[in-house]
């Protein structure tokens, strides 16, 4: 555990909590892509199946439970509790175009051809692109609430910090995981355009709106 890993995890947790609180406090999930949230719930479910087979640490186990719990709570709020506020008309990204090829890729490129390992690989690949429906939704409506941009910022920051963590681990522990690194780089790149808008607009007190 190094400082980048820890702040990365906390940043990830902050993103998840910000989104839950936003929906809970405003009693609305307007502007939030339910599809992205379903994908994240799928990511956590397929990745953390090792909860059933191996114990790493109390920290590890509890964070996994928190992530999974929050992911399903978010999906429940969007598709059940605050369903009336869900903006489904703008959430039109075709997720099967992500899930099907990624499922195929996880079968072809993995560390070990076993069910748990393939599901872990699937979750790593899927996480790298799971935010696309949300970004697509923002590009479609041309704007995002400021609180939504904070959510996206912490979610992107988390992956950027994980990249630093992997550089650290390569230098000080001497190993690396190619699947995680390639997917992590892809995931971080997807946020670059958003980071630029966040710094130039949101941090200067303006709402994030895209030019028409």
């Amino acid at each position: 555990m190094n400082i980048f890993r820890l702040t990365g995890d906390l940043s990830h947790l902050a993103a998840i909590i910000i989104l839950l609180l936003k929906i809970w406090k405003t009693r609305s999930c307007a502007g939030i892509s339910g599809k992205s949230q379903i994908l994240f719930a799928l990511v956590f479910t397929t990745r953390y199946l090792d909860l059933l087979t191996s114990f790493i640490s109390l920290y590890n186990t509890s964070m996994k439970f928190i992530y999974i719990g929050c992911a399903y709570a978010t999906v429940y709020m969007i598709y059940a509790k605050f369903k009336a506020t869900y903006d489904g008309n703008h959430d039109t990204f075709r997720v099967e175009f992500l899930v099907v090829p990624i499922g195929g890729l996880a079968f072809l490129v993995n560390h070990d051809f076993s069910p748990l390992e393939i599901l872990w690989t699937f979750s790593i690949y899927l996480e790298s692109v799971a935010i696309l429906p949300q970004l697509f939704m923002i590009s479609k409506t041309g704007e995002a609430e400021t609180i939504t941009t904070h959510y996206l910022f912490f979610l992107g920051l988390y992956r950027a910090l994980y990249l630093m963590n992997w550089i650290w681990r390569f230098y000080f522990e001497g190993f690396f995981d190619m699947i995680a690194i390639v997917a992590g780089v892809v995931q971080t790149i997807l946020y670059c355009d958003f980071f630029y808008l966040y710094v130039t607009k949101v941090l200067k007190g303006k709402k994030l709106s895209l030019p028409a």
């Binding site: 090792d50 490129v109 390992e117 690396f176």
Partner: peptide, 10 residues
Amino acid sequence: MLSNAYKDEL
């Protein structure tokens, strides 16, 4: 494939 080292991560 290369090492499978990051299973302790989230």
